[in-house]
């Protein structure tokens, strides 16, 4: 990043705080999650690197380290740490990360695209029937889970490939990526229902 700390002039790794002098910044809203983590936007993210950045940056902004510095500074730490945690949530989740990239490229939002193709919706209705009727742990449910997991991985691979390298802003491929992402939401929701049904209660 090219930005420098207004307080000490050191280069900034994150817009949340200065790693050199420790001063907290007040980043303008909204900030891109990639920028918060000092990363260039891109679909591939190294999870280990992300985690180590999370730890490093949390050491800069966590309210524990500003407990005695007055309300205003403490509020800033609370705010910046919340931004950091939110950005981590986006970047560590493949689907949310893809969504973020798509929005950054000016692609259609979830609601812009309208409804899904008829054939896909029929498929969703079939899943729902199994979800309603099959008992937890039954062969039908296990089969559906296997099928859905496969489909999720396929959709993820499609989205990943379409976003690597990043397509042109406003490009034609964006609508297709949106459709895959929307389909994935249906798949994830169905998988969520299976796992909730088998959850210990």
């Amino acid at each position: 990043m090219d930005a420098v700390c207004p307080s000490c002039g050191a280069g900034l790794e994150t817009p949340l705080a200065c790693g050199a002098c420790g001063v907290l910044m007040l980043p303008e809203d909204p900030v891109c999650p990639f920028a918060i983590f000092g990363l260039a936007p891109g679909f591939e993210v190294d999870r280990g690197d992300l985690k180590s950045r999370l730890r490093r940056f949390t050491r800069l902004v966590h309210p524990d380290f500003f407990a005695l510095e007055g309300e205003e500074t403490l509020a800033k730490a609370e705010h910046n740490n919340a931004l950091l945690n939110e950005a981590y949530g986006v970047l560590s989740d493949e689907a949310r990360r893809a969504n973020q990239l798509l929005e950054g490229l000016g692609g259609p939002s979830e609601k812009d695209l309208g409804s899904m193709p008829q054939a896909f919706l029929m498929e969703v209705m079939e899943w729902n029937e199994v979800l309603e009727d099959a008992a937890p742990g039954s062969p039908e449910l296990l089969e559906l889970e296997r099928e859905l997991t496969e489909q999720r991985d396929r959709l993820a691979a499609e989205v990943g490939a379409a976003l690597t390298p990043l397509p042109q802003p406003g490009g034609e491929s964006l609508a297709g990526i949106r459709q895959s992402l929307n389909a994935r939401r249906y798949v994830d929701r169905a998988l969520g229902r299976i796992s909730a049904g088998s959850a210990p209660s």
Binding site: R55, T58, R59, H62, D64, F65, A67, L68
Partner: peptide, 16 residues
């Protein structure tokens, strides 16, 4: 131990 962290002596320990 957490009180000591809040006293600002060091950032070696971090609770998330």
């Amino acid at each position: 131990a957490q009180a000591e962290v809040l006293m600002g002596s060091s950032r070696d320990i971090l609770l998330m």
